[in-house]
Amino acid sequence: MNAALPPPELLARVIGELQALIGARNDPVFAEDAVEASEVRRFIHATMDDPARYADGTVPLGFPVHMFRRGLTEPDPLDAVADKDFDGRSQVLTGRDFEGVARVLRPGLPAVEVPLTRLLNGGYEYLFYRRARIGERVYRISSYHDFALRQGSTGPNILVRVDDAYFTADDAPLLNAIATVILR
């Protein structure tokens, strides 16, 4: 076992603190831009999808998930690129450290403070209502679905499940996604 791993009693306390956050939700967060044709074109190209499927002005089912980007005046994550530990993701999640101790998984949700340094994408559970359309504005409401402590092959893992609900500006549901984030 890795000597740097936190002791089990610490993780037991941490998971207890995290479980108090279940149900915490943020206010609606609007994507910086509306569904925009050039973004959709690049998305379809990058996923090697068939453009003919979207000739009616709708966009790929999962497109809204990726609409929540850095705003025009927000800090540049690449400002830290000269740091030897720059990984390109911690800077986006925390905006301040590489230690993996406090992570803001969604704007407006309480930070997840876990003494585990690695973060993995564990998977998703989706419910789909309809495809977004070019020109629509999209917002997201996020909440903590649950937290769990598991023993993995390399040591303890903390699983964080975040529920993201995506809507159009006139409150029409587009999709729900429960993302599993693995901290280890």
Binding site: T47, D49, D50, R53, P60, L61, G62, L120, N121, G122, G123, Y124, E125, Y126, L127, F128, T180
Partner: peptide, 22 residues
């Protein structure tokens, strides 16, 4: 995976739920 299922159902069907693990 979304594309796989969407191409299969075409315009008449609907991918209602999808769960996946990495």
């Amino acid at each position: 995976l979304m594309q796989l299922l969407g191409r299969w159902t075409g315009d008449t069907g609907w991918l209602a739920q999808l769960r996946l693990q990495f």
